[in-house]
Write a protein that binds this DNA or RNA. Structure first.
Lengths: 183, 183
DNA sequence: ACCACGTGAGACACGTTGTCTCATGTCATA
DNA sequence: TATGACATGAGACAACGTGTCTCACGTGGT
């Protein structure tokens, strides 16, 4: 077995363990078991647990972005819907919350978290930016504040309140936002 | 030393460890060291780690609530300010995020989290409810949605974005909300 | 003076972690 | 085909953490 396929098998196993059994279960030993490789092999590639966490998480930062159509509300809704799916299906919420928790004590993870958040919301940010530039959103809009408001409301419901996000919730959050800032 | 003072010493130590060293460090052994008691004593009172976590967290659910004055914006602002202080100083944010993470795999903690959130926001909920009843807020207001929007925006900024919440941020969040829902 | 009881210290078995060595299998090259 | 470089799996090993147990000690109430 070549180096790359072993690495991938380990990373796949790490993600599986992370999602199914939680962060605390993500040990070299457990990952080796699930990946079907020797324990020493996991240590060889990732001597530190935090690096394994980092690499396992990094591959999760993939939000499907739709092409903007020019319809502001429609584009925003599509993007928020993509984020909703990410939170629901790919369990980005769990990863995010685990990162937020560990990042306080493991500085390496703070950067992973920052990237995770910023990449996950980059398309949304672009849409809002364009909306302001084209005069369809209030110029006084605080971009970071708006992102925190939109994403925060969704993440909070999904991860803190344990609600499964519905399309209606997303629309409500968006329409409240637009009621305030759309021109 | 009596039973109660030992219990309190252990719970104090548990909270200290929880805040200063993180959730993973919260073992019977570490708590015993910090509390200056024998390891067996900690096991005697809390055989399961999750119970220790539970009791250590439960005492953290104390938000200072101001008396309502009748001025809706002022009262809401005071309450959000109290929540901000809680998130900033008493590290409720860290506890909340740690609870959210562990609750996914430890059902006992889900209830602790639920109480934590609901008690922390109960005063805010009452203010909003009264505002609707007195006709000062849009009757179409979705109470849970509004709470999620307000709290979510603050928690998200504090814990996910690592921003230290300022008074200005709180005012902005509130005024955006009132711009949409105040009559 | 007595006793009940919570406690601290420590012994013990057990599982986990991180490191190391070595025989084996695989792949590219001569 | 023979050869050599290399990644791997298995396992030995010490160190550490965990959960349970026993026992001597000190305190407070009787």
């Amino acid at each position: 077995m070549g180096t790359d396929s072993t690495r991938n098998a380990i990373l796949d196993a790490a993600r599986q363990v992370l999602f199914d059994e939680g962060w605390e279960a993500l040990s070299h030993q457990r990952v080796a078991e699930v990946a079907g490789v020797g324990r020493a092999t996991v240590y060889r590639h990732w001597p530190q647990r935090v690096q394994l966490l980092q690499d396992a998480c990094s591959a999760e930062v993939l939000v499907m972005h739709a092409e903007p159509t020019g319809d502001l509300r429609g584009d925003l809704l599509a993007e928020l819907e993509a984020i909703r799916q990410e939170l629901l299906q790919r369990r980005a919420g769990r990863v995010l919350i685990a990162l937020a928790d560990r990042a306080a004590w493991e500085p390496e993870l703070a950067e992973v978290k920052r990237r995770f958040v910023s990449e996950g919301l980059s398309a949304l940010r672009n849409l809002l930016e364009a909306g302001v530039k084209e005069g369809r959103l209030d110029a006084g809009l605080d971009l970071d504040g708006a992102l925190a408001g939109l994403a925060g409301a969704l993440v909070y419901r999904q991860v803190i309140l344990d609600q499964d996000l519905t399309k209606a919730m997303v629309e409500r959050v968006l329409d409240d936002f637009l009621a305030r800032y759309a021109l």
